[in-house]
Simulated assay, not measured.
Amino acid sequence: MVQYDSSAHNQDGVVILWKINHSQPLKVFSKHFGQVVTVAFSPNGKILATGGDDKLIFLYDVVSLQDIGFLTGHESYIRYLVFSSTINLLASGGNDKIIRIWDIEEKKEIKQLLGHSDFIYSLSFNPNKNILASGSEDETIRLWDINQEKMIMKIDQGIGKIYPISFSPDGNTLASGGLDCTIRLWDASTLKEIQKFEGHTDNVSCVLYSPDGQTLASSSEDKSIRLLNVHGGRNIQQLNGHSKKLNCISVSPDGLLIASGSDNQKIKLWNLKGGVEVRKFIGHSNYVQIICFSQN
């Protein structure tokens, strides 16, 4: 099956859809009226959702390459989108400090999760439960029960502003990164810190698990990608090649590739195990803010 890699640069509202084995864009979407900072594929890979500072979420059919509607409700900048892998829901968060849950088939908002006191920068669904994690500039990580529409746990241990978070594939661990240049692993059932990784010399912009849960990939404004052995607690490899700060990474569903986007307007595709750059995508006229593989 074909894998797609979608990225958004954040100035003129352009979202580019790529096939990973071609250097030319498959499709350019330009519905947004401003910056685009978040994109997400549905679990079946058929729907692409995009959001940005125009307060809108656009939906696209990846098969027909057509837009299929938009969602409205946010009162400010949308910073993160994520689909649930267990139910047909999309979660969104941003500068209005509200997490909104959307029914994609009905194209309507069905729930709101309230509690953060500052911008929401990241969201991650537990792959095995209807639990959503959120990270915020209010220096907390919160876990939410989607069914009961309430917060069930939070971390507020003076860890600083939280930008990226990511559940492990088995849902037992939550990874986070932030302005202190460190990556922390948390027990998802207790939110107790179980491991801490250091090494980046600037803000951590993204953390993602490999599909087998053995490797944690991180990107940073220090221009590097680090691959960490989760169980061994050590740095496996460092990938260098971007000339400006890294904003985002994405790991392919088969765990063989990692894509990265940065302020140098380029997307690089790497062999995850060998750490070798295998392809470069050039098409953006400004910095690449977010990148995402589809799941098929």
Rank of each mutant, 00 (worst) to 15 (best):
M1V: 11
M1K: 11
V2M: 08
Y4K: 03
D5Q: 15
A8K: 01
Q11S: 14
G13H: 04
V15E: 06
I20P: 06
P25K: 06
V28D: 12
S30G: 09
H32E: 12
H32P: 08
G34I: 07
A40S: 08
A49C: 09
G52T: 02
D54M: 11
K55Y: 11
L56W: 13
L56T: 13
L56P: 08
I57W: 05
D67V: 06
R79I: 04
R79L: 12
V82T: 15
F83K: 00
T86L: 14
A91L: 10
R100D: 12
D103A: 08
I104G: 07
L114A: 15
H116G: 15
S117Q: 14
Y121H: 13
L123Y: 11
F125Q: 03
A133R: 05
A133D: 08
S136M: 01
D138M: 06
M151R: 12
I155C: 02
G158E: 05
I162T: 09
P169C: 11
D170I: 04
L179Q: 13
D180W: 03
C181D: 15
T182C: 05
I183Q: 08
I183P: 07
W186H: 05
D187H: 03
S189K: 13
T190C: 10
K196C: 10
G199P: 07
H200K: 10
T201K: 15
N203G: 08
V204P: 05
V207Y: 00
Y209V: 06
Y209T: 06
P211D: 02
G213V: 07
L216H: 09
L216K: 01
S220C: 12
D222H: 03
D222L: 04
D222R: 02
R226T: 12
N229D: 13
V230L: 03
H231V: 02
R234E: 14
I236V: 05
I236E: 03
I236W: 00
L239H: 08
K245C: 14
G255Y: 00
A259T: 06
A259Y: 04
A259R: 02
G261H: 00
N264S: 07
I267P: 01
W270N: 01
K273Y: 09
V278L: 13
S285M: 09
I291K: 05
C292D: 07
F293T: 09
